[in-house]
């Protein structure tokens, strides 16, 4: 939207499934622009994205169903462009333009 998006923001797609969409306005897919750098000036990584999501996108009060002790709740899988985030450095993964980050919960029932 702003003219400086190339320098200041990274466009990404964030998806929620497995029941997590319930926490995010019942919407599976979110197109977002997140800052390129976190408060400390380091390139934005998943840890920062999670914090950003909690502060800006997650409206549901039950935030603990998404994060626990500052990181993604155990039982929620994170896929970076379809790859398990554990293969990508977990929350240290530095987010790239047009990345697709999927959070899928294994915690909900059928």
């Amino acid at each position: 939207m702003s003219g400086t998006k190339d320098d200041k923001a990274i466009p990404i797609t964030v998806e929620f499934s497995g029941g997590l969409e319930m926490l995010f306005s019942n919407q599976r897919k979110h197109q977002l622009s997140i800052p390129t750098k976190d408060e400390a000036g380091s390139p934005s990584n998943i840890a920062y994205l999670v914090k950003y999501l909690c502060e800006n996108v997650l409206k549901d009060p039950r935030k603990d169903l998404f994060i626990l002790d500052g990181s993604v709740r155990p039982g929620i899988l994170v896929l970076v462009n379809d790859a398990d985030w554990e293969l990508e450095g977990e929350d240290k993964y530095e987010i790239q333009r047009n990345d697709n980050i999927l959070f899928v919960s294994t915690l909900h029932g059928g």
């Binding site: 319930m22 899928v104 294994t106 029932g109 059928g110």
Partner: peptide, 18 residues
């Protein structure tokens, strides 16, 4: 975890609810 990944990678149609 693998069940969820299998469903994801095979694009299976499932529903999560509480």
């Amino acid at each position: 975890k693998e069940i969820v990944l299998y469903a994801h990678h095979k694009n299976l149609d499932y529903f999560s609810t509480e």
